[in-house]
Write a protein that binds this DNA or RNA. Structure first.
Ligand SMILES: Nc1ncnc2c1ncn2[C@H]1C[C@H](O)[C@@H](COP(=O)(O)OP(=O)(O)OP(=O)(O)O)O1
Ligand SMILES: [Mg+2]
Length: 778
DNA sequence: TAACAACAGTCCCGAA
DNA sequence: TTCGGGACTGTT
């Protein structure tokens, strides 16, 4: 009997047979490798007459047996034939032949993943195997707490002083690895603090040895899928060094060109850049996803800045001491980032049940889909086929209505109670049993809001059942995080929230296996119903409704107290079916809503609240937008603080006037007028060329690569004509080069005018008055 | 930086 | 000069 934490799984074909190898570590920290030779690949065929299935064959591929099974497809019973084949690689071949006989299903499930699903094993959790030698006889899942054994690494490459592109002809000059109990920097020129090897080749060989000796479960880098490992591989190939990091002695394997990934057999390679960018990217404030910026935001740690542009000349001059420090520092940051995201990453890996390598690279849709597939197996549901191209296009044209947003009345208000449904869409799915298989059942009647549709009340739906489990779990975590004010739990609750909301999105996602417009329509119709219901109830109770968006409702308490606010919460919750629940997030001493530009109408998705500790919670305003000029963002934020906290109109006016003045007199440093904007396509693809695209082209002219996602920092210069003809890269901007008038009219004034007008101050008075003082100065 | 969804504000370009 | 739409970013 062997018990161990499962880290990775991989299969090979030996003597015409698929052999799975499971890699992991036992409770004492000893590495474990076991093989399973008794798992057979298969797919399903749904048909009336299975004749001919057993005889399918092509080349070396053939069917080994066929079993009849009663399964469910989209929650309806079907008879399916389970077609076993001799090799995993036979599946994509024989399924094509089987298409003449019936509908093939589950014919695109990777073999190792199939194994994990069928055996119910969870990576990074315990498994228990009965073995003979190193061969698995039986295997089952257990539970235990895994402690990660990780190693971070980073390479530095030689770059000639005048070049910046990646060129595999340039050598790797340094490699660092970091774990709390082990650090090393390798290089091949004399340097303080490093182990100095004779040559690049020797260094690469040593690197392989170092990693093997440390024997990590997890090897982590920052952008290591796209840079470090492909680079290492290229240099190793050139110098004839096997990059044999695999636990079976195999080399690192890279895959894909646009979306590269580097796999190491038996070790979970985690590219933190990829994971952070995809999972946290949307919510991060950072200007770029450089290791430094990301560490700054996530860890509050900044590494020493070293000018890497000089690494080539420094190397040539043999002055590389500072790069040793720098290289190690990078790996330390990478390691700490790993620790930071570990609770969420571990959570997601265990939930989805795929190896860490795969789990850390999943998109949200893949995540949802693999989770559903895992659950489907245990509930005897067949995995529906992925939609074909035509079906995808058809779905693309469909659009379901979304959430309701209440139009606010511009103004400053006191004592705002903020209510918000906990996991609204997921809780609707669960409480109303929304699932493709429960739509308009024969056995029940009823009608959902806005649509002639109902959902079964008797039979548990597949999707609703799957989400219920996760939702209950998230609720526990969220409550714990609130109770203990624990940021780690909060991060986990957040990851789970996004995941849960992705189930709703997934049901309306064109490429989904489980796709249902009806479900999507139902979910959002219920959501609109529930948020409007709170609004109506609040009004009935005499509250002034100030705002609401999708699942939230903000009430001005007026003469009412916080106790009344809590009573109202009870009232609403009494009318809600489990697991739906409205939460009272907080009562804020003050809040402001403004008009949309050029109208008197209240702007949605733009407001600010002052909390009891005196902090601002700003939503939608320029101050939280990276593509607004820094000066506009700063001034607006200060202004909001003055308006909500100091309540000082004079001070507010003065702030803006002073800022206008400084802009006019060109007194502000360049950093204050920088605008950062992302290019979402390559620069040649633009129909309309805006300032940031013009700036991106300036970068390209300087020989810099601009890719999708590059964030461009620029300023607007004085001059005539279009704004795009007046941009200058922030890095090249000279002091005083910016156009103060542009920033006043197009940036600062728009950001503050609707706030000032709530106070009854007209923007003209601000700019005019300054003009007068300026003139008076002459 | 392909791939969970919809709703919404603002800036600037480009056609009329 | 006006106005619609492309582009980007944020909120839920
Ligand atoms: N990223 C998203 N994808 C799809 N739907 C979303 C997303 N974000 C929000 N929604 C929808 C579904 C949510 O239930 C609803 C309300 O959003 P929100 O209040 O932010 O989250 P939530 O209600 O799910 O969690 P909680 O309020 O407990 O943090 O809006
Ligand atoms: Mg909510």
């Amino acid at each position: 009997m062997t018990r161990f934490f499962l880290v990775d799984i991989h299969y090979t074909i030996e003597a015409g047979k698929a052999i799975l190898r499971l890699y992991g570590r036992d409770g004492k920290g000893k590495p474990v490798t076991l093989k399973d030779e008794n798992f057979e690949p298969y797919f399903y065929v749904v048909c009336d007459d299975p004749a001919g299935l057993e005889d399918l064959k092509e080349d070396d591929f053939h069917v080994t047996k066929v079993e009849k099974e009663e399964k469910l497809l989209l929650e309806k019973p079907v008879t399916a034939y389970k077609v076993y084949v001799n090799l995993p690689t036979a599946v994509p071949v024989l399924r094509e032949l089987a298409k003449d006989i019936g509908q093939t299903l589950e014919d695109d499930v990777l073999f190792a993943r199939r194994y994990l699903i069928d055996k119910g094993l969870t990576p990074l959790d315990l498994v228990e195997a009965e073995v003979e030698g190193d061969s698995i006889k039986t295997i089952k899942a257990e539970t235990g707490t895994y402690t990660p054994k990780g190693l971070a690494f980073d390479i530095e490459t030689y770059t000639p002083p005048d070049r910046k592109e990646i060129d595999y002809d340039n050598p790797i000059i340094m490699i660092a690895v970091y774990a709390p109990d082990y650090q090393k920097v390798l290089t091949w020129k004399k340097a303080k603090g490093a182990e100095v090897l004779d040559s690049e080749k020797a260094m690469l060989e040593r690197f392989v040895d170092v990693v093997k000796a440390y024997d990590p479960d997890i090897l982590t880098g920052y952008a290591s899928d796209g840079f470090d490992l492909p680079y290492l591989l290229a240099r190793c190939k050139k110098l004839k060094v096997p990059l044999a990091l695999g636990k079976d002695g195999s080399s690192v394997i890279t895959k894909g060109r646009s979306r590269q990934e580097a796999r190491i057999t038996g070790i979970a390679h985690v590219d933190l850049y990829k994971f952070i960018r995809r999972v946290l990217g949307r919510t991060m404030k950072t200007q770029s996803f450089s290791l430094n910026n990301v560490s700054q935001e996530l860890l509050g740690e900044k590494k020493q800045e070293v000018d890497l542009d000089n690494i080539g000349s420094a190397w040539d001059a043999g002055k590389i001491d500072e790069f040793v420090e720098y290289n190690l520092q990078d790996t330390k940051l990478t390691y700490n980032l790993m620790l930071k995201v570990w609770p969420s990453l571990l959570e997601m890996t265990k939930i989805v049940g795929l190896p860490l390598f795969d789990a850390s690279r999943l998109s949200f849709s893949q995540f949802v889909e693999w989770y559903m597939m895992k659950k489907a197996f245990s509930m005897n549901e067949l995995f529906p086929a992925k939609p074909g191209y035509r079906e995808q296009t058809r779905r693309m044209g469909q659009r379901a209505q979304g959430g309701y947003v209440y139009e606010p009345e511009p103004g400053v208000y006191d004592n705002i109670a903020v209510y918000d449904y906990r996991s609204l869409y997921p809780s609707i799915i669960v409480s109303h049993n929304i699932s493709p298989g429960t739509v308009n059942c024969e056995c029940c009647k009823g009608k959902i809001p806005e649509h002639d549709m109902h959902f079964c009340k008797k039979k548990q739906g597949f999707v609703s059942g799957v989400i219920k489990e996760l939702l209950d779990y998230r609720t526990t975590i969220k409550k714990q995080s609130q109770k203990n004010k624990d940021v780690v739990l909060e991060a986990r609750a957040y990851a789970l929230k996004v995941l849960l909301n992705s189930f709703y999105g997934y049901l309306g996602f064109a490429m989904a296996r489980w796709y249902s417009t009806q479900c999507v329509e139902a979910i959002t119709a219920y959501a609109r119903h529930y948020v409007k219901d709170v609004i109506a109830k609040a009004e009935k109770q005499g509250f002034a409704v100030r705002y609401g968006d999708t699942d939230s409702c903000m009430l001005e308490l007026g003469k009412k107290t916080e106790k009344d606010a809590k009573k109202f919460l009870q009232l609403v919750n009494k009318g809600l079916a489990d697991p739906m629940e409205l939460e009272l997030e907080d009562v804020f001493p003050a809040g402001i809503w403004v008009a949309t530009k050029g109208t008197a109408q209240g702007a949605k998705k733009r407001y600010a609240l002052l909390d009891k500790e005196g902090n601002l919670k700003i939503r939608g305003f320029e101050s939280v937008r990276r593509n607004a000029a820094v000066i506009a963002r700063k001034t607006q934020q200060e202004l909001l603080m003055i308006v909500l906290k100091d309540r000082d109109k004079e001070k507010a006016v003065k702030l803006v006037k002073d800022t206008v003045d400084k802009l006019r007199k060109n007194e502000l440093p360049i950093e204050d007028v920088v605008i950062t904007t992302q290019v979402q396509k390559t620069t040649d693809k633009y129909e309309s060329v805006g300032p940031h695209v013009a700036a991106a082209k300036l970068m390209e002219n300087k020989g810099r690569t601009v890719k999708k996602g590059t964030i461009v920092a620029y300023i607007v210069k004085k001059g005539e004509g279009k704004i795009r003809d007046r941009v200058q890269l922030a890095e090249d901007a000279r002091q005083g080069e910016y156009d103060g008038e542009y920033y006043i009219t197009n940036s600062l004034v728009p950001a503050v005018e609707n706030i000032l007008s709530v106070l009854g101050v007209s923007p003209e008075s601000i700019t005019e008055a300054t003009q007068q003082t300026t003139l008076a100065g002459f």
